[in-house]
Nucleic acid binder design. Structure first.
Lengths: 238, 238
DNA sequence: TGCTCTCCGATTGTCGACAATCTTGGCGAA
DNA sequence: TTCGCCAAGATTGTCGACAATCGGAGAGCA
């Protein structure tokens, strides 16, 4: 239907449900955007007061976040925001390559013509935003996530969608926020996205998988280099 | 080190931690083994009393299980054991094919010679158990899970290990319990396992991945047929 | 001066009770 | 008879207080 606001799906936003769900959402957002620093300790009482709720719901939220791997919990020692070191990111991107490649292969046979058309429109919007000075880098990054999520959805594999989109894989978004501010590599990424859509249009699953794997592999190499540089300046200033 | 008792890793058993962790463990076990039927509603007060704890820790446990996808929770309407229908199982096995194939490919270059040797011993034990009337089918099934988990560990990819082993993927064990009582297909499965280990010994990642994918694909076909038959008799008796 | 041990504050873990919401059974009207 | 509405029971959601445990500051001793 609509091609805009789809990334709402990535974090079922309204959360009209329980306070615990609300807290989960707010905390996840704070962690993903870096508002809460990596490794920072999360004080239950303090957070509960800030959110205007008791500690019960908040503890449930922390348990939920633990399941999402956004926090680490040690009994009797508190909960901390997860730390994304180089090895962890490498592992994530490796898994992503396998899962998103698979999603692409399935999507090539499962997506409707209309869905593929919408995907093209999404890329058009994306390009438009890039043209006007990159728009806010924010929406650009989220737009990219939209693209990947739409393909995951196109696979018609619920487990895959769960792992790549709705909950399990928030770590990715976290990584994006950390790295995508540099906002390099958007042009070639868009080009690769178009290639992938073309493969989907031709219903060529093998090619689509190959292109997606290559795309993600390239993204990882780019991010990896970025981390290297950051570590260098980190070393220099230390 | 030891090749026995390794499947303890699959459900960090001791759980000397909090009551919530204990409840998580006990509930997960009950669900996986089928002691709690699929779709059954979980009453908080009742379970809390049975486990001799308050509702607080129990609710945290349910939140954790929700993250593991072992239960489904609907606000103000309670928590239910997840239902593994045919589509869900198909999705799971599809994802498994991608992830375990990847694990195998990585393991071929990452595992030490000693680890591979231990893997062979594991299969010897496995064969022994099959010879003596199949032993308890239980340990046989768990032994198979051990095999797969050892390879996941051999990938040296923590995210992969998490997804395949320690927490996220309990659904698989649940499925095993439901289907493996029939205990067919153990001989060919063992044969395939040996082929995989041989590929690992030769450090042939591509071959190892291919064999693992084929192995899992075969397992799904076998289980799929089993479900078909069950549905037939179900239809007949209805 | 440096190390250890102890005690205290802070934080987490747990419980019981209360409020909000949903479900169900019964009653009355069309 | 059947449909819809209402009330009572049951269940979930939430809160505040208490107990258990941990980390750290400071005193005491070598």
């Amino acid at each position: 239907m609509s091609t805009i606001g789809e990334h709402e799906m990535l974090l079922q936003v309204p959360e009209q449900g329980t306070l615990a769900d609300l807290a989960t959402h707010r905390l996840a957002h704070s962690i993903v955007t870096g508002e809460l620093a990596q490794g920072q300790k999360l004080n239950e009482a303090e957070l509960a007061e800030r959110f205007g709720m008791g500690r019960g719901p908040l503890r449930e939220a922390l348990r939920h976040l633990e399941g999402m791997r956004l926090v680490t919990r040690i009994p009797n020692a508190g909960t901390r925001v997860v730390v994304l070191d180089r090895k962890t990111l490498a592992d994530i991107y490796g898994v992503r390559e396998a899962l998103e490649g698979m999603a692409c292969r399935l999507a090539a046979t499962q997506m409707s013509n209309e869905e593929i058309a919408n995907l093209k429109k999404l890329l058009d919007n994306h390009e438009e935003q890039i043209e006007k000075v990159g728009g806010k880098v924010y929406s650009q990054s989220e737009g990219d996530l939209d693209f990947h999520f739409q393909i995951a959805r196109g696979s018609r594999n619920q487990m895959l969608m769960d792992m790549l989109g709705s909950e399990q894989y928030q770590l990715l978004r976290m990584c994006r926020y950390r790295t995508s501010r540099k906002a390099t590599r958007t042009k070639p990424a868009l080009q690769q996205h178009r290639q992938i859509v073309a493969a989907l249009e031709q219903r060529d699953g093998e090619l689509a998988e190959l292109l997606m794997r290559r795309h993600i592999h390239g993204a990882w190499k780019s991010i990896s280099e970025m981390i290297d540089k950051e570590e260098e300046v980190g070393q220099a200033s230390a």
